[in-house]
Amino acid sequence: HAATELTPEQAAALKPYDRIVITGRFNAIGDAVSAVSRRADEEGAASFYVVDTSEFGNSGNWRVVADVYKA
């Protein structure tokens, strides 16, 4: 099962156990969220919340930071 994305309210009520950072070329924010979901799932997380997204220069590469939560 894939890790689910939390709302800001849900994330605020929970304590993350880790923070992950992924970088890559994403065509849309949805693609980045899917990549975070896969990584969170690999780490055994039940859910995640994207904290920050930023573009690296003009290369089209993105850096996505997310907190991950157990259950």
Results as ranks from 00 to 15, higher is better:
residue 23 T to F: 13
residue 24 G to V: 07
residue 36 V to Y: 00
residue 31 D to L: 06
residue 21 V to Q: 05
residue 41 D to W: 15
residue 27 N to R: 11
residue 3 A to T: 06
residue 61 N to I: 15
residue 36 V to K: 02
residue 51 V to P: 00
residue 8 P to Y: 14
residue 63 R to W: 09
residue 24 G to Q: 02
residue 40 A to I: 06
residue 33 V to N: 04
residue 53 T to P: 02
residue 64 V to M: 03
residue 32 A to H: 02
residue 53 T to G: 06
residue 8 P to Q: 12
residue 70 K to L: 12
residue 46 A to M: 11
residue 33 V to I: 15
residue 38 R to H: 08
residue 26 F to T: 01
residue 35 A to H: 06
residue 52 D to C: 14
residue 44 G to Q: 05
residue 69 Y to S: 03
residue 60 G to M: 05
residue 35 A to I: 07
residue 52 D to K: 07
residue 59 S to I: 09
residue 25 R to M: 11
residue 46 A to P: 05
residue 66 A to Y: 05
residue 1 H to Q: 10
residue 70 K to W: 09
residue 24 G to C: 07
residue 60 G to Y: 03
residue 39 R to P: 00
residue 11 A to C: 06
residue 15 K to T: 13
residue 4 T to C: 15
residue 31 D to Y: 02
residue 42 E to H: 09
residue 47 S to E: 04
residue 31 D to F: 06
residue 63 R to P: 02
residue 5 E to R: 14
residue 12 A to P: 03
residue 36 V to C: 07
residue 68 V to Y: 07
residue 33 V to S: 03
residue 68 V to R: 00
residue 8 P to C: 14
residue 42 E to L: 12
residue 70 K to M: 12
residue 30 G to H: 13
residue 16 P to E: 01
residue 58 N to F: 10
residue 5 E to G: 07
residue 61 N to S: 10
residue 57 G to W: 08
residue 19 R to L: 04
residue 7 T to K: 07
residue 64 V to F: 02
residue 26 F to D: 00
residue 2 A to Y: 14
residue 53 T to Q: 08
residue 42 E to K: 10
residue 36 V to L: 08
residue 55 E to Q: 13
residue 28 A to Y: 09
residue 29 I to F: 11
residue 51 V to F: 04
residue 37 S to Q: 15
residue 48 F to E: 02
residue 27 N to P: 10
residue 54 S to L: 14
residue 16 P to D: 02
residue 67 D to H: 07
residue 5 E to Q: 13
residue 34 S to N: 13
residue 63 R to G: 03
residue 1 H to Y: 08
residue 22 I to E: 00
residue 52 D to N: 10
residue 10 Q to I: 06
residue 45 A to Y: 15
residue 15 K to E: 11
residue 34 S to M: 14
residue 17 Y to S: 05
residue 9 E to N: 08
residue 28 A to M: 08
residue 44 G to L: 04
residue 43 E to F: 14
residue 49 Y to F: 14
residue 51 V to T: 05
residue 23 T to D: 06
residue 48 F to Y: 08
residue 29 I to A: 07
residue 32 A to W: 10
residue 51 V to N: 02
residue 50 V to E: 02
residue 10 Q to N: 04
residue 2 A to D: 07
residue 53 T to F: 15
residue 69 Y to E: 01
residue 24 G to L: 06
residue 45 A to N: 03
residue 61 N to R: 10
residue 45 A to W: 14
residue 53 T to M: 15
residue 14 L to I: 08
residue 34 S to L: 14
residue 67 D to M: 10
residue 11 A to P: 02
residue 54 S to A: 12
residue 17 Y to L: 03
residue 45 A to V: 04
residue 38 R to F: 06
residue 5 E to P: 08
residue 38 R to C: 08
residue 26 F to E: 00
residue 28 A to V: 10
residue 36 V to Q: 02
residue 33 V to D: 01
residue 49 Y to Q: 03
residue 52 D to H: 13
residue 32 A to G: 03
residue 60 G to E: 08
residue 58 N to C: 11
residue 28 A to N: 15
residue 30 G to N: 10
residue 13 A to F: 12
residue 19 R to C: 05
residue 6 L to P: 03
residue 63 R to I: 14
residue 31 D to G: 05
residue 47 S to F: 15
residue 67 D to I: 08
residue 44 G to A: 04
residue 7 T to L: 07
residue 49 Y to A: 05
residue 31 D to E: 13
residue 22 I to P: 00
residue 3 A to E: 01
residue 13 A to S: 12
residue 63 R to A: 07
residue 25 R to I: 11
residue 44 G to W: 05
residue 51 V to H: 03
residue 23 T to M: 11
residue 33 V to P: 01
residue 27 N to M: 12
residue 46 A to G: 12
residue 25 R to E: 09
residue 36 V to A: 07
residue 36 V to T: 04
residue 53 T to L: 15
residue 41 D to C: 15
residue 49 Y to H: 08
residue 52 D to F: 13
residue 48 F to A: 00
residue 12 A to F: 06
residue 57 G to Y: 06
residue 62 W to H: 04
